[in-house]
Structures are given as structure tokens and as C-alpha cells.
Design a protein around this nucleic acid. Structure first.
Lengths: 135, 135
DNA sequence: TATTTAGTTTATAATGGTTCTAAAGTAAAA
DNA sequence: TTTTACTTTAGAACCATTATAAACTAAATA
């Protein structure tokens, strides 16, 4: 994803391509593989990999803006911090609590044969499978 | 579950049956159905249903002691608060984000036909299925 | 291009759930 | 009954996250 595409991605989401957003977007989206992070880890990585400085609040703002625009998804992981994922398709996760590492599982790698009906008046929005790992 | 059983339950977990623990245990475990709660909701319910007073720290301490003893499980729900569950068997959940309500799904109500292998050197500890509901 | 306007970044304060602390209290052992 | 070890408690501390409001900047307007 080149700079023009980054600009397009931001503009089409109603986000001004500011210096900070462009740099964070480049860092997050110019990748082949899915990337998982917390705001804290992203902050550390950004200060290593770039020369710019980012206020912590800006990282929070930007990550939320990207999430609201559908460019990031939030993954529920036991613990205090919120994890984000550059993979925004429906998919599942392995979680290794030893290393706090998430690994994506493609939607079609899991087939559920039997599932209960949703309770009265409710519908199923989505199904998340979370596989905890051990050594 | 009568008072003697509550005492046994506590004693066998190495927990002194103090006034507070017994009252909280009675409230949590003398039920037919699974009960889901957060520390906040438990605090409110206890102050309604009992005449005793409990320091918030005591509720935290007690809930963690019960969890460590295997009498409660923790459920991962998107959001800030930690949810607990009196159902400590392997099972799954519906979650209704409109009402913040959890509903248990018995383990055998979900059959997974296909599942990926665990990554190199790792094993699968457990599989959690979380079904988000909508109206 | 200069000016205005609306959106953005920033440092810092505030928030809120949870954990820590250490003093007072209580159950169990001696 | 005395001692010991564990527990409760109120309040402080913690820490991830959100709010605030002043300084800044991109984009629109003139």
C-alpha cells in the first residue's frame, strides 16, 4: 500500500491525512501479514521505527478512528489491555498466554457443525472462536 | 447447598468460613441456574439482599479467592469490567450487548467439525465459543 | 496567496475498575 | 486464654483509557 493509497484510505473514511495518521497507517497497513497490537506496543514500536514523536493520546485517537472506519478490529483477550488486529475479515484466534501472542485463524479453517438457536427474539450477529494454547 | 456444605466448600479450598465469605458463597452458590455477575453488580445485589455490609475490597478478595479455588470462572467480555460465572464446567456463551447479558451454552450444544492444528510446539488448552447476539 | 474555519494534535488532568496497604478485627491453634 | 495467622476494611495507589482545552494545521474560502 503506497502513499497515494494511504491517502485514499484516510480520505474515503473522512479522516484528514495528517502527518501522524499517515505515518501510523503506513506502519500498520503496509504489511503482508496480519498485525496484532495493543496501544502500548504500538507506541513502543512507533518510537523505535520512526523519527517522529506521537502523543499517547494521538495513538489512542488514531487507533479508534481507524477502528471506527473499519480498518482495524478489536480482539477480546483476557486481561487489561485492548488488542487490535489489522485483519478486519471475520476470523478466529489462537492465543498463547505465555507470550501474550495472538495468531489469526481464517474463517474457513473452523467449521461448526452444531450451534444452538439464538434466544427468543434475538439473532446471531457473529461467532467468535478463541483457542487458548499451552505448551 | 446448605450451610454445612458451604462450610465444607470453603474449608476444602483452604478458605476460612468467615461471615463475609459464607454470606457471599450462599448468595452465589445456592442457586439452580448459572449466575453471571461483575464485582459491581454483585456489590449492588449484596447490599439489596443482605443486611450485612461488605467493603468493596472484600468482594474483590472473595471473588478472586473463589475463582482461584475453582468455584467461579471468569468470562471474557468486550469492555472494562470482568464478568464471573458460577458455571465452572467447560461451556460457551451467548452475549447480548444490548443488555450486557451473558447466557450459558452447554458444551455439547456446540460441535466443532474442523479445527486447525495448534502452532509448532503448542497444544490446545481449550476452545471458547462466544456468540454475539443482535435484535 | 492570505485568511478563515473546522478538524487535529498535544500535554496534562480526570476517570474508573481493580489492586495495594497497613491497621483493626477474628477464626483457629496452642 | 493466649497466641498466631489469616481476613476485613477504608482509603490510597495504580494503570489503561478518555476528556479537556490550548496550540496547531489541513482545507476551504476569498
Amino acid at each position: 500500500m503506497n502513499k497515494i493509497d494511504i491517502f485514499k484510505k484516510l480520505r474515503s473514511s473522512g479522516l484528514r491525512p495528517t502527518k501522524q495518521r499517515v505515518e501510523i497507517a503506513k506502519f500498520l497497513f503496509e504489511r503482508d501479514k496480519t498485525f496484532h497490537f495493543t496501544v502500548e506496543s504500538l507506541d513502543k514500536l512507533l518510537s523505535k521505527k520512526t523519527t517522529s514523536k506521537f502523543a499517547l493520546a494521538t495513538i489512542y485517537n488514531t487507533v479508534h478512528a481507524f477502528k471506527n472506519a473499519g480498518h482495524l478490529s478489536e480482539v477480546e483477550v483476557r486481561g487489561k489491555k485492548t488488542y487490535f488486529d489489522t485483519n478486519v475479515t471475520n476470523h478466529h484466534h489462537f492465543y498463547d498466554s505465555e507470550t501474550s501472542e495472538l495468531i489469526d485463524i481464517d474463517e474457513n479453517e473452523i467449521i461448526i457443525q452444531k450451534i444452538p438457536k439464538a434466544p427468543n427474539g434475538k439473532k446471531i450477529k457473529n461467532v467468535e472462536v478463541f483457542i487458548n494454547l499451552k505448551n
